[in-house]
Nucleic acid binder design. Structure first.
Lengths: 365, 365
DNA sequence: CTGAAAGCGCTAACAA
DNA sequence: TTGTTAGCGCTTTCAG
């Protein structure tokens, strides 16, 4: 009998249904299960001799901890659940990547779920994460109101932080970007490039991102005296297709705006594509901006000017908040007030907008 | 005391650490825990009266099953694990979406992990899925050889099916597409469009997809007398950046091929973009093809001709195989021979290739 | 049809 | 330092 397990594809210890338990390891090592547990989980004091014997026995038997049993005992799974509105949206997958990295640093794993942009699916996913005793939940709610009940109910049971989007009427931690500030940068940049009127293309106002971005857009446009016709505010969903449809509609109107501000990059990609199809020069005739800075943003023709979300920072803060909430809950406490962290994003200027018209500046003396 | 839970954000039953157990429900209902279990899990016979009383008590207390405990008892979690090489690759996310749908029909959930294109991370993810007692694993191995040990070791412990890619030297079920047949279609189409020479741009030969696709490319190119200079086979990785770099290299050579066949759409997107940058007309001077038919394929300039993978079908077959393996393992059996299912993909013709030159055809009489 | 009780695999008091 | 033992919350024989 050899101590190595891999290789020939069907060996003794393998095969489903006969997993080695701590008791078998204990027997083989001639010690108690408690000692095995202490050695293998690294808690408590053990002699070097015991360590050797236990590890050896465990290796020989091919022992693997059963984290289900461990979780039942510890009521802690070292697993965090994450729910995103749509796993096919590149922004969310890159956010997931950042969260995974942040969690990895804490020795935790991620259990990712896709809400398929449907609050009901989302509610089921949240419930099943709760049932599986994840240590905390990170959620980007798919709907600005309909997601409320499920999110709040989940937050009442375990640490939860909302990411990027948030849902009204809930009382939980949140980390995201300051959409108002982002739109200020966008509008100012467009204005510097000569735009005096602008359209807005976003999703329906069923999530906080669009709401905030539209609000920010309106406010700053007014401040900079940009013309915004009501017909130029087009709301659909976060897809390339809708971006294309929006341009088709704009093209049928009497006047074209100087700029089209999009609530995310997918829409913006659709917009630039459709502009090309309609023979509308970007940025010559119309400037276009996106939001999120997904990987494909630079692939648009022309490459998209967009708002870069500080994903790593967002993820780090979220994980930190989760850990704080978990330890607060552990030593008994009432949950304190919720944190709302709004990070300031930065504008990434590419070819879909015009370079700012040169303005008089004080020269270096 | 009310029976509703949601609403004010901090109510009695809520808060971490005090979950309702089946024993409390039993007490309130004035029955045994066994009866509660029978009612709530729907197994075994129970009178209507009991059902009512138990459910009522459960509702009032806000009981939720603890699936950790249930899993420990049942040694079944109704959860399937999935590991993909890179969660930021749109092909894999859409595959994940298909798998989720297929699993949803079986009442199972998905636990998704990202291997970050690193066999070591992949091995850790696999191990932790095993430790968490998932009922089965779906994996697209990140490396054609280095992933072998971990994949095989996992497969020895529980039902596992490889998806899309597979790793050499393993003995597990596999579902994917017939890359050789796919390349036959690609080459024939390019030839019909007048191409007489072709380059190939793919990742390093560290995964089965590229290996197979290059092999299929070479074979069919030879059969159709397409010229393939050795310098025209460029291997890097599955990224837009590499596609761009490949064109830069090709552009420095003496002769340009009539066509560039890419091993996936990300590369192809990079290739078309770089061609534009280098002033190489697509498809006028060079035809370009991709592979996978990701959503962004149609957004290239020009839109990409590519090979469409039948994701839903792949996912369905994978889930079926997993279920079969699970039930085979349940009634004790040795695992039977492995299934290798290669589906035939279809070519999606768009603007990055030329329409076939009109050929003589028998006219309808 | 219902209840009592054993135990899934692991860990943490408490004893020795 | 090590062993003994009592559960974590659930399901499921086996009696009644």
């Amino acid at each position: 009998m050899r101590s190595t397990e891999a290789g020939n594809g069907r060996q003794g210890a393998g095969g489903p249904g006969n997993r080695v338990t701590i008791a078998e390891v204990a027997e083989r090592a001639g010690v108690s299960t408690a000692t095995v547990s202490r050695v293998l989980s690294g808690r408590g004091q053990t002699s070097a001799e015991m360590q050797r014997r236990v590890r050896r026995a465990a290796d020989e038997l091919g022992y693997r901890v059963n984290s289900i049993a461990r979780a039942l005992r510890n009521s802690r799974t070292d697993t965090v659940g994450m729910v995103v509105p749509s796993i096919t949206n590149p922004f969310f997958t890159s956010l997931v990547e950042s969260v995974e990295h942040a969690l990895g640093r804490e020795g935790k794993e991620l259990f990712l779920c896709d809400a398929q942009s449907d609050p009901e699916v989302e509610a089921r996913r949240l419930a099943s994460l709760v049932a599986r005793n994840v240590d905390g939940i990170i959620v980007s709610p798919s709907h600005g109101t309909a997601s409320g009940a499920a999110v709040q109910e989940t937050a009442d049971r375990l640490p939860l932080v909302q990411l990027d989007r948030f849902v009204g009427g809930t009382d939980t931690d949140w980390v995201g970007v300051d959409d108002i500030a982002a739109m200020r940068q966008v509008i100012d940049h467009l204005h510097d490039g000569g735009a005096r009127s602008a359209a807005f293309v976003g999703s329906q106002l069923t999530n906080s991102s669009t709401e905030q971005r539209l609000a920010g857009f309106r406010r700053r446009a007014a401040e900079r005296d940009l013309t915004v016709l009501e017909d130029w505010v087009l709301l659909g969903d976060y897809t390339v297709e809708f971006g294309e449809a929006a341009v088709a509609r704009l093209a049928r109107m009497d006047a074209l705006p100087d700029a089209i501000v999009c609530a995310d990059d997918l829409i913006a990609l659709g917009v630039t594509r459709a502009c090309r199809a309609h023979g509308i020069d970007v940025p010559g005739r119309v400037q276009v901006t996106g939001f999120d800075n997904i990987e494909f943003a630079r692939l648009g023709e022309p490459a998209l000017t967009t708002v870069d979300q500080p994903r790593d920072r967002i993820a780090t803060e979220a994980v930190r908040l989760l850990a704080a909430a978990a330890s607060a809950a552990a030593d008994g406490g009432e949950r304190g007030p919720c944190a709302h962290i709004a990070l300031i994003p930065s504008l990434v200027v590419r070819d879909s907008t015009r370079a700012p018209a040169p303005r008089e500046r004080p020269t270096d003396h």
